[in-house]
Amino acid sequence: MQADLIEDVLYGPAQMLGGSQLEDGELIQMAREEFEGRPFCIVRNWMLLDLLLAEAQEREVRKQGLQPTVLFINHAVFDSDTLVPTGDGLITGYQKDFHGCFFESKDKLYILAGRGARKHVSVPAISALHENLSRPVR
């Protein structure tokens, strides 16, 4: 059952989205200049996951000024404060803001590079994915 949930998240139908088309080096330089002193992470192969929460849970998330959306990062290219290991597999905390190729959680700005996707997922599906990744949520 858990494998089916993860498979659906990773390989099921999703809306395709585009991130920045700049090369990694250009993105790192731009982010260092534009977001000086602010933690950021450049990511590729990403997916925005809109969580299907119970009404009370969604209200709680929104009370904190957040949206019930998380970012699944399949490959972190660069992290300015090296808290996110480069490589694969991590889920962020809830969305604070999202514009174009910038996804912001409570703690960090993520710069979305290349192609990505967006889809709705259930709480059991995101839990199964998170357990399989065995990395903390940020």
Rank of each mutant, 00 (worst) to 15 (best):
P13E: 14
V123G: 05
S105N: 04
M16T: 13
K108Y: 04
S105Q: 00
R38Y: 05
P136L: 12
R44E: 15
I28T: 00
L5R: 03
L83F: 09
Q2H: 04
G93M: 08
G19Q: 04
G89L: 06
E33H: 06
H130F: 06
I91N: 04
A3I: 15
C101H: 14
A113H: 03
S122Q: 07
T82Q: 09
P124V: 10
D107G: 07
L90D: 01
Q64T: 04
T82K: 10
K63C: 12
L129T: 01
M30H: 06
A54I: 01
I73K: 07
A117L: 13
G19M: 05
R115S: 15
L51Y: 05
I6H: 03
L71C: 01
T82W: 08
G87E: 03
N45E: 15
I42E: 00
M30P: 03
D8T: 11
K96P: 02
G25L: 10
L49D: 01
K63F: 13
H75D: 10
E55D: 14
V137H: 07
A117M: 10
D79K: 02
F78E: 03
R135Q: 10
N132M: 09
F78Y: 13
L129R: 00
E7Q: 15
Q67F: 14
V9W: 02
F102G: 01
E60T: 09
T92E: 03
E34M: 09
D79V: 02
V61H: 04
D4G: 11
V77E: 05
M16K: 11
D24Q: 07
E7G: 11
I111T: 01
F78H: 08
A125H: 01
G37D: 00
E34W: 06
L90M: 13
D4V: 14
E60A: 12
V84E: 04
Y11W: 15
L52N: 11
T92D: 04
A76C: 14
K108P: 00
A31E: 01
E131I: 07
V137I: 14
L71D: 00
C101E: 10
L133T: 03
E58F: 05
Q95H: 04
E26Q: 12
Q15H: 12
S122E: 08
S122A: 09
E36L: 08
Q95K: 12
E26V: 04
I6L: 05
R44A: 14
S127L: 13
D50H: 14
Y11Q: 14
S134F: 11
I28D: 00
R135Y: 08
L10E: 01
R115P: 06
D4A: 15
I126S: 09
L71A: 02
P124T: 08
D50G: 06
N74M: 05
N45L: 13
Q15I: 13
G100F: 09
M1Y: 15
E104V: 11
P85S: 11
Q21S: 12
K119F: 00
L27C: 06
T86N: 08
N74I: 01
N74E: 10
Q15M: 14
E60V: 08
A14V: 04
L22A: 08
F102Q: 07
N74S: 08
Q21D: 11
V123F: 12
M47P: 02
A56Y: 09
A76P: 01
G114R: 07
K96F: 12
L83V: 11
L71T: 00
R138L: 08
H75P: 01
